[in-house]
């Protein structure tokens, strides 16, 4: 009976978190189009529903009913599973994301699907698995654009994953845990306890490498539409295309969620007297602020060249993050003694 309760609760939590994430993905596309439009003196989607609010649903339906084309010279098996390999790691990371202090209403203890003691590494591990989807999609399409996009994506993600992982280490040194819930709890009690104040350099490097990791402008080399058509998903249509799309936006939400947990206190309110607002709303506010930042830099910066991207990753970001780790470790050592 107890097992059934546990499983039922977990399934319920998974359903809610997945629903929220997928809805966020849908409205992230809408928000992106709208915000970019406003930045470019346009209006964006206005036709479907009031102010175009139903546009993501219309887009989803369109993609769902589109014909699924598999190129005749593609490797059909890998072509079919690549989008799934891409999407699953993007969604699976939310399992360890703490979204609330507790969920007392349902008799649970921790506001997280699974409070894994290596939660942060778990997210990094599955984020790196997502690369396979992209590379295999590029290879199996048997198209030069897709192939180049896949190769670029592989090189870019491997390079920037290092910077991403290294910029997180400073936070780990401060909080002494790999569990995202404990990292959040270590930042309790107001915004002056947040890690961003102790690790500003790590925050900046994290955000930059997160942008590169999720293949967003100005680092969207894998799908640079002006040179590679659509990069690794050039040959994809219909639902499979939608999977890649979902994966890209889910990845964005994941890295923003992770940034707000690691640096901005996660579900913690910025001031004590604001505690009456539930934690998941704070997490959503912080995540969406970062997502807005992602759109903002997309609207501002032009795409960098691929060699500049690599040079920046290896020669600028990684040395900075290594120096940051050194200084943080020294600081923690001195503080503890």
């Amino acid at each position: 009976m107890e097992l059934a309760m546990t499983v039922g609760l977990a399934v319920f939590q998974i359903a809610i978190v997945m629903g929220v994430v997928l809805l966020s993905v849908a409205y992230m596309t809408y928000a992106e189009r709208k915000v970019l439009s406003f930045m470019q003196d346009r209006l964006g989607p206005m036709e479907v529903g009031p102010y175009g609010l139903l546009q993501p649903i219309a887009d989803g339906l369109k993609l769902f009913f589109k014909e699924d084309i598999i190129p005749s010279s593609a490797n059909k098996l890998i072509f079919a599973i690549a989008p799934i390999i891409c999407l699953v790691p993007a969604l699976i990371g939310f399992a360890v994301m703490p979204y609330n202090e507790t969920y007392a209403a349902f008799g649970g203890e921790a506001g997280v699907i699974s409070d894994l003691n290596v939660g942060l590494l778990y997210i990094l591990a599955f984020a790196s698995v997502g690369t396979y989807g992209v590379i295999l999609a590029g290879w199996s399409s048997n198209s030069k654009y897709a192939m180049l996009g896949g190769l670029r994506c592989g090189a870019q993600i491997i390079s920037y994953e290092l910077a991403l992982g290294l910029s997180i280490v400073g936070v780990l040194l401060l909080s002494g845990s790999l569990s995202l819930r404990e990292i959040t709890m270590a930042q309790d009690g107001g915004f002056w306890h947040w890690n961003i104040l102790l690790q500003p350099v790590a925050f900046v490097t994290y955000v930059i490498s997160a942008v590169a990791e999720t293949n967003r402008l100005p680092f969207d080399m894998p799908e640079a539409e002006s040179e590679l058509v659509a990069g690794f998903f050039t040959e994809y249509t219909g639902m499979r295309f939608a999977f890649f799309f979902l994966a890209e936006y889910a990845n964005m939400i994941l890295v923003c969620c992770l940034a707000s947990v690691l640096f901005l206190g996660g579900y913690e309110a910025p001031m004590e007297f604001l505690n009456f607002i539930p934690g998941f709303i704070w997490l959503a506010i912080k995540t969406w602020a970062l997502l807005f930042f992602f759109i903002w830099i997309r609207g501002t910066f032009p795409r960098v060249r691929f060699d500049q991207l690599m040079k920046f990753g290896w020669k600028v970001l990684i040395p900075i993050t290594l120096a940051n780790i050194l200084f943080t470790a020294l600081g923690v050592y001195i503080y503890n003694n």
Binding site: F38, M39, D41, T300, F301
Partner: peptide, 21 residues
């Protein structure tokens, strides 16, 4: 310099749109 560009883009958001529906 990057921040200057970002500020410009941010302020541009509040200008009226020139789209004709």
């Amino acid at each position: 310099e990057l921040m200057g560009g970002m500020k410009l883009v941010f302020l541009q958001m509040f200008k009226p749109s020139c789209t004709l529906q």
